[in-house]
Amino acid sequence: MRFSFILFLLGALCVGGFTTRASAQEEGVNKKETAELKTTVGFPLRILQTKIPGSHLIAKPYTDQRIPAMVRVIESFPHGTDFRYDLEFRGFEPGRYNVIDYLQREDDTELASAPLWVKVEPILDADKVRPIPLPQKSSQFRSYYIPILFVSGIIWLAGLLAILFYGRGTLKKASVVTKKMTPAEKMRPLIDAAINGSLTTAQQAELERILSEFWSAKLNLGHLSADQLRSTLREHPEANRMLEQIDLWLHRPSSETTASVDVNALLKPYQDSTTVSE
């Protein structure tokens, strides 16, 4: 009796153990099938250390924007004769995807592996799957942009040409106009004023400068510096005589000019001089 009870207990335990193991295995499969990976539209999903039997896999090239999902092989690790993979999956449309469909063998052999499902769920409501289209407003400025750009370019170019040619030309023209007067022409009214006794100090100084230039033009000394010109004129007998008279007239202390300078006699030869030109 006791022995038969023990046998019963052992039998019951064996049966119980078998049924528990079988149900556990069944539950694991179901669990594997039901534990589906999930992500949302556009968000990457990392699938780490996934073992896929066979030779090395690579991601299929994403050649068409109509393909609703893509896979990236982050890293692969040898695993015996197989490989483990770190994958990144991204779905662009809601739905259920087999990751294996987006992989291919590196050696171009056939890929026949158990599916690896990923469910891509939408974030937006069903009736708001597409973004609201932007209003297509036509800008008036945008429509005239190219013509405005073209006209501005022409105005800028015209301004540049005007500065380069007209501006310089005006300056040169102005300088030419001032240089048209010869020293003789310039000093004639000053000499007249000097002889009339109405010459101011500033005009005296101006007359002195013009007389130097008159001699410079007469002796062709235009290439000399002002200092060299004065030195050269000092060495010329006639010009030096004129300079000494002017020194006596304008630059020596008044008490020394008792001998007086005959300004008429000094300036008369230059009054009617028209021979010298620039």
């Binding site: 000097a194 101011t200 300004v263």
Partner: peptide, 20 residues
Amino acid sequence: MTGQDATSQVNSIPQSTGEP
């Protein structure tokens, strides 16, 4: 007009005059 007259128009700054 003499040089003396012309120079007399000048208001020279006060300085010594005459030969050195």
